[in-house]
């Protein structure tokens, strides 16, 4: 891998990764990875222009507002940032979006959603974490509910999902619960990813692939 054309490497920003490698490791074809690079460039050059996606750029792309804080967008950003260095590199972007591909097995989507909801990274979803997430979505939706009503929602959810009644939702319980309620995983599939080359036809101009 040491023989990279100097011209090519100068054009590529720090987070860039070979589309052939990414296509081998994911559901995407080389052309689709190149189309994703067009999307990645648009986001990663929107504010800091260094070819890496910073959190403000991610927020800007999601909400049209770089200052909008949102617990769940923070969680997504942190999970996409596989190296935990505060930015999303191109390879991280492609590998993470792969989970959201319509053809990705549902088990992978279930596992990713569990990590999203395991706010403290303890390996289970606790009652306090669930309440924190309910309060965040109510705040985001500008819905006012009494503390009793919030407690009731959390209690009811635990009665359904915490099958052994130990006060925690573990990965196996989450898997059973999510399998029984597939609507919960709707946000884990992005139909756009099926037509990514149609959405970003300009990838052809920058393509290094011959197919």
């Amino acid at each position: 891998m040491g023989c990279v054309s100097s011209k090519e490497s100068r054009r590529r920003p720090p987070g860039y990764e070979d589309p052939n490698t990414l296509a081998r490791e994911t559901t995407f074809s080389v052309n689709e990875v190149e189309a994703l690079y067009e999307l990645y460039k648009r986001i990663s050059y929107s504010i800091t222009k260094d070819g890496l996606i910073h959190k403000e750029e991610f927020q800007l792309a999601l909400f049209r507002n770089s200052n909008k804080r949102n617990l769940f967008a923070d969680r997504i950003f942190d999970l996409f940032d596989l190296k935990r260095n505060g930015v999303i590199e191109f390879g991280e972007f492609v590998r993470s979006l792969d989970v959201f591909h319509p053809d990705t097995p549902v088990e992978e989507k279930i596992a990713f959603a569990f990590r999203l909801y395991d706010l403290r990274g303890t390996g289970f979803i606790g009652r306090e974490e669930l309440k924190e997430m309910v309060l965040a979505i109510l705040n985001e939706s500008e819905l006012l509910l009494s503390d009793d009503a919030v407690e009731e929602i959390v209690d009811q959810t635990f009665r359904q999902a915490d099958m052994n009644g130990d006060g925690k939702i573990d990965p196996d319980e989450w898997k059973v619960f999510a399998s029984k309620n597939p609507a919960l995983l709707k946000n884990m599939t992005l139909p756009y990813l099926k037509d990514i080359t149609m959405a970003f036809p300009s990838f052809v101009l920058n393509s290094g692939a011959s197919d």
């Binding site: 999307l39 986001i43 792309a61 999601l62 909400f63 949102n70 617990l71 769940f72 967008a73 923070d74 969680r75 997504i76 979006l97 959201f100 909801y117 669930l130 997430m133 309910v134 965040a136 979505i137 109510l138 985001e140 939706s141 009731e152 929602i153 959390v154 009811q156 959810t157 359904q160 999902a161 619960f177 999510a178 309620n181 609507a183 919960l184 995983l185 709707k186 946000n187 992005l190 756009y192 959405a199």
Partner: peptide
């Protein structure tokens, strides 16, 4: 009623999870 009382169903509707927005110009 059980569906409306499902915390995860509420949470999954967050705009923060709506990654489709990344694809909008």
């Amino acid at each position: 009623k059980p569906e409306s009382m499902n915390a995860f169903a509420l949470i999954s509707r967050s705009q923060g999870f709506n990654l489709g927005n990344l694809f909008e110009k």
